[in-house]
């Protein structure tokens, strides 16, 4: 790693101010960022650790019934306190030690195309709350490793509308155990949302065709005959674009079948 300073603010305000330093970068749980730094692929001059900010930690229910998760909340806490689909997703991110450190804010800020949380946020139509504004998930994800966050902006909270039923099905990339394809299905009274991670070169996306079909009839069969095009899907050592496109259908069906 290149060397850097470490700041450990105790409040969002102090964190925002620390992020004003030149070449500052926020450090969530570090489970992706620290390995990246070890490869010397990034050279921040200061890392602003968010791990000591208690106002950014915890899971609670907001006035509108949404599940509000502090940006610095670790995966293990969400696995315990999230609704079924979200808890299930959080309980399968990385491994126990990773879940003890990794945070929802860190994951969403990084927007790895194979990360799990983006599927939940987009699949639930969550709101990404930062120190300065609220961003709808539909506007937040802007492609692989790209988000609507401005420089220095910190995710302080994520608000999830609680679906009637939901489920995340993840087909793992066997080495990294990230999602080769992950599908989050959430049924709300106003309709069904389906978000897919791991598959597309553009990062997480909604599968509109499946959403429409499942909104009509929430059953596995509704997905029969639907498929996502292989164009634009990731193709690598672990699976071709066609294979990933196929898995999107399989995982969607399984998510519907297992939704709770």
């Amino acid at each position: 790693m290149y060397n850097f300073d470490v700041e450990m603010p105790g409040s969002v305000a102090d964190a925002v101010s620390a992020m004003g330093r030149e070449e500052a970068q926020a450090l969530g749980g570090g489970q992706t960022l620290i390995p990246t730094l070890k490869q010397r692929l990034a050279s921040p001059s200061v890392l602003v650790s968010l791990s000591k900010i208690s106002e950014m930690k915890g899971v609670c229910t907001g006035e509108d019934g949404a599940l509000c998760i502090g940006g610095a909340t670790v995966h293990a806490a969400v696995a315990k306190d999230g609704f079924a689909g979200l808890a299930g997703l959080a309980s399968r991110i990385g491994d126990p030690a990773v879940r003890a450190r990794g945070t929802i804010g860190g994951s969403l800020a990084n927007n790895d195309p194979s990360a799990c949380y983006p599927a939940a946020a987009l699949g639930c139509g969550a709101t990404i709350v930062t120190n300065s504004r609220e961003i709808a998930a539909d506007d937040y994800f802007q492609g692989m490793f790209d988000t609507a966050l401005e420089e220095g902006e910190i995710i302080t909270e994520v608000r999830f509308p609680v679906p009637e039923v939901s489920r995340y099905e993840k087909f793992v990339q066997p080495a990294s155990r990230f999602a080769l394809v992950g599908v989050f299905v959430a049924r709300f009274s106003e309709g069904v949302r389906v978000a897919v991670t791991g598959a597309s070169e553009d990062g997480v996306f909604r599968w509109a065709e499946a959403e429409a079909a499942l909104s009509q009839a929430f059953s596995e069969n509704a997905v029969d005959g639907l498929s996502v095009p292989a164009d634009g899907m990731i193709s690598d050592l672990h699976g071709s674009a066609a294979y990933r496109a196929h898995l999107v259908g399989v995982m969607t069906k399984r998510a519907v079948a297992n939704a709770a």
């Binding site: 066997p174 990294s176 050592l237």
Partner: peptide, 23 residues
């Protein structure tokens, strides 16, 4: 079932860490 040390046609190692080499 799992392990494969793969190169691309230019001799770049594709499975260069535990992120891609399945233990």
């Amino acid at each position: 079932l799992l392990e494969n040390c793969a190169y691309d046609e230019n001799g770049q190692l594709l499975s260069a860490s535990y992120m891609d080499y399945t233990m």
